[in-house]
């Protein structure tokens, strides 16, 4: 079966290997340069313009956020579905190999590839971003959380599993690919916005008005910033208390508001939880992947039973 899998998918493997290699070369070269530059600029405290001239490279690294989706669309949605669509399952199943073994071999190949390629890209990005992380407020911000560490691997496992299930349901490759794109984007956005902030109980800080709401430890994941009066959250337009004169300076205004009981309340996850969050997010997507694969296997068995 190993020979058969290799003969079937060698072109796909070659394309993926070439793409990873083509990505690795500039990442390794610029990564070394940036790391050296960071050490040099730190002594002179001139690191502000460190990434000047690396715009294209930063964009390339950020684009890797799409790698899991590409894996899901071009591997997950094709590995089993293309055979079902072309009817070649009837050829393989007419050999002396059980359908169960065929399916598990296919899935094993799919997930070994998914793991290997997404881990390679994520590893390169994580290493390259060491310099970048030193320059940004928090690794939780922007795309940093989604392209570094173990989360991209979790996303890729999920995307491949989703592609497999979509292929089993549609039995045609193109709609399976489209379903994979739609499903992946929806689930990623939903989990990022609605689930991720609650992976652990957040910390809350009450900050004086003069802070402007900035005052959580560096590297934190800020979830929300609210204005409170005597501990109650305010919403809508706010009327300043009559005692606080509009004509005064910003400082006297803040002073006055503080005295009247106004505070900023910031809800956040401290930076030390970064890896905890990485593994939880990975776990959530890996668990979803297991669920989708199991459903696909059951459905496929039922379809041809």
């Amino acid at each position: 079966m190993i020979w058969v899998l290799w003969r079937q998918h060698r072109a796909q493997v070659a394309i993926a290997a070439a793409a990873v290699l083509a990505f690795a070369v500039p990442v390794l070269i610029t990564g070394r340069k940036l790391a050296d530059a960071l050490i040099a600029c730190r002594s002179g405290n001139t690191c502000g313009g460190l990434f000047d001239g690396y715009q294209a490279m930063t964009t390339l690294v950020n684009i890797t956020v799409a790698v899991p989706l590409l894996i899901g669309v071009f591997w997950g949605a094709t590995v089993v579905c293309r055979e079902v669509e072309a009817g070649t399952t009837a050829l393989v199943w007419a050999q002396s190999i059980t359908r169960r073994r065929w399916l598990w071999s296919k899935l094993l190949a799919l997930f070994v590839f998914t793991l290997a390629s997404s881990a390679a890209v994520a590893g390169l990005v994580t290493w390259w971003s060491n310099t970048h992380n030193a320059q940004v407020e928090s690794r939780f911000n922007g795309l940093q959380f989604d392209i570094q560490g173990v989360t991209p691997v979790g996303y890729a496992l999920f995307a491949s599993a989703l592609g497999f299930l979509a292929g089993v349901l549609w039995r045609r490759t193109l709609p399976a690919m489209a379903t994979t794109i739609g499903g992946f984007v929806v689930v990623r956005i939903a989990i990022e916005n609605y689930l991720r902030p609650h992976f652990m109980a957040p910390l809350v800080r009450s900050l004086p008005m003069s802070s402007g709401g900035d005052g959580v430890p560096s590297g934190s994941f800020t979830i929300s910033k609210e204005l409170t009066l005597h501990g109650h959250v305010l919403s809508g337009p706010i009327t300043a208390p009559t005692g606080c004169s509009r004509s005064g300076t910003r400082e006297t205004m803040d002073e006055c508001l503080n005295a009247s009981g106004f505070r900023f309340r910031v809800t956040y996850q401290p930076g030390g939880r970064y890896w905890g969050f990485q593994w939880i997010e990975f776990g959530v997507f890996a668990a979803l992947a297991v669920l989708l694969v199991a459903s696909g296997v059951v459905l496929l068995r039922r379809q041809d039973g």
Binding site: A86, G87, T88, T89, A90, L91, A94
Partner: peptide, 10 residues
């Protein structure tokens, strides 16, 4: 041995 109607081949 089984040969399906569409003669499936890669």
């Amino acid at each position: 041995g089984f040969l399906a109607q569409e003669i499936p081949l890669y």
